[in-house]
Amino acid sequence: MSTPAPRPICEIHKLWTVFGRNIIHQDLELTINAGEVVSLVGGSGSGKTTLLRHIVGLTQPTRGEVLLFGKNLHAMDRVPQQRLMNRLGMLFQQGALFSALSVFDNIAFPLRELRQFNEATIRQLVLHKLSLVEMEPDAGNRLPSQLSGGMIKRVALARALALEPELLLLDEPTAGLDPERSENFVELIKQIKHALGLTVIFVTHDLDTLVSLSDKVAVLADQRIVANCSLQELGHIDHPFVQNFFQGIRVRLERTG
């Protein structure tokens, strides 16, 4: 099978993040290609979530630039910027569902904002997304406060997928779920990734999720990316944090074969 030339979706060049006197990122470089599932790992407070927020344009790095689909979000006009943002979907750690809107309206929200579809089409698309995340259609009438943690994650995923994005960002996708649910959720993301051909960047602390979901691992340590390679190749990288981390995942790698 011939592999097509890698198409970069997200490129980060010489990125610095400084909070007060704290340097979080220093000359950070990272490239993520289309079709990859990349997990971002690193110790607590190493700036994983901050990096994720830089990528989606919520925050601006102190120095350096983030290119999404080859464009710098912060250097764009408002309308093209908005359209470019539609090509990515983000799943927040707590779901970040609009608490005043029902599940149905939450998923319909980005579709309605687009102003291209009539209500009948929107309804069909919302119900399709609900079935994609394996939720019953009558859950659509409920409010986010009436959902369990796992269901909130599913609805949030459905909302992130509403506009069929190319890039999906997940912040701790399985945090707060019990092992069985988190396994199911990972399976779900894998299925959707397969069905829709997504590029996925995610942050996690859960090693099981990491091993079963990611093709590549980007390790954040010493304020930069010290490794960006497949799980197996991590063993060859000479860095104390990476070695330590690899010990943790080796057992799991052997178990899954």
Partner: peptide, 11 residues
């Protein structure tokens, strides 16, 4: 063809 396009056509 994605679901959005398909839904518009089917509609």
């Amino acid at each position: 063809l994605d679901t959005a396009g398909a839904a518009v056509l089917q509609n």
